[in-house]
Design a protein around this nucleic acid. Structure first.
Ligand code: FES
Ligand code: FES
Lengths: 144, 144
DNA sequence: TTTAATTCGGACAAATTTATCCGAATTAAA
DNA sequence: TTTAATTCGGATAAATTTGTCCGAATTAAA
């Protein structure tokens, strides 16, 4: 469904959000320990997310990654996915035709777009805040 | 969503089904021309599908691929996907945890499994017959 | 001012997926 | 029986994704 980069990215951002809600910063080591992901690769992903202004990065001692507390509620899952995997998830054809096009639909177009639209709605309606909160309250996990 | 192998496979099978409904066999060249896919790679995919008994292959002049007319209605999209991509689409976690597990859910588990279940239902309820028929009647396309 | 902790960025490496090549096997037709 | 059309299967190559390494830049603290 999502690329590895995207999976790590989502997990990382949720963790960073949780820390940020507690007024704390998360360092790369901190993050990779918490989400159990490869350090150097995760660093690249975080860099991408920083460029996309989804997270904030600070160098130097006591540096790390954070997200403005006010932004956490407005950031949606869709933005993270978009920053890392682009929009192929929306515009691609389920059977691999160049683009999805209702005028010359592939045989699964109708059924596929219906599910994809559900997915899109879900991503657009899911806020970082609710994900971070479920983590904070111990209802959900980022590694296992 | 699906691997390239799976995309080609689905398109190929739909085309083979259409031909089979018209009492005709489809050769590899025929197929790759019709679905616009790489020949050698598609051959591998067809081999897998033949091993999985989803299609029938015949060597020699006038050989090719076919599907028993009676089977076309009973073959579901889910079987094709399963033969080529396995069941990771069902049991995988949306955020990449080892497996999806409701007892220690990742933060997107509920929303993700709900959509995935829709997808599963769709794949299980979509028959090759209806896909091949929509192609036959010119309502849908396998290349563009 | 020096040091140490951190992210950044580029080059590289490994793994996986996608794709090609080619000879072997099979089989229908000439 | 020979030939030609076809799938089969193994080896290999190209492309993409995933992952690592390491020095440079930044910056807070000693
Ligand atoms: S054309 Fe294939 S999903 Fe729309
Ligand atoms: S645990 Fe992540 S989707 Fe179920």
């Amino acid at each position: 469904m999502f690329s590895k980069a995207c999976e790590y990215g989502i997990r990382a951002v949720i963790y960073i959000a949780q820390k940020s809600l507690n007024e704390e910063r998360a360092s790369l080591k901190d993050i990779t320990a918490e989400i159990d992901s490869p350090e150097a690769f995760t660093a690249k992903v975080l860099q991408q997310l920083a460029k996309a202004k989804i997270i904030n990065s600070l160098k130097g001692p006591n540096g790390g990654f954070e997200i403005g507390k006010d932004k956490i509620d407005s950031i949606k899952l869709s933005q993270i996915v978009n920053a890392l995997d682009g929009d192929s998830i929306y515009k691609g054809c389920g059977l691999g035709l160049k683009v999805c096009n209702a005028n010359e639909p592939c045989p699964v177009h109708d059924k596929f777009t219906s599910i994809r639209s559900e997915l899109r709605k879900m991503l657009e309606n899911t806020s970082l805040f609710e994900l971070a909160t479920s983590l904070e309250t111990g209802l959900t996990y980022l590694k296992r």
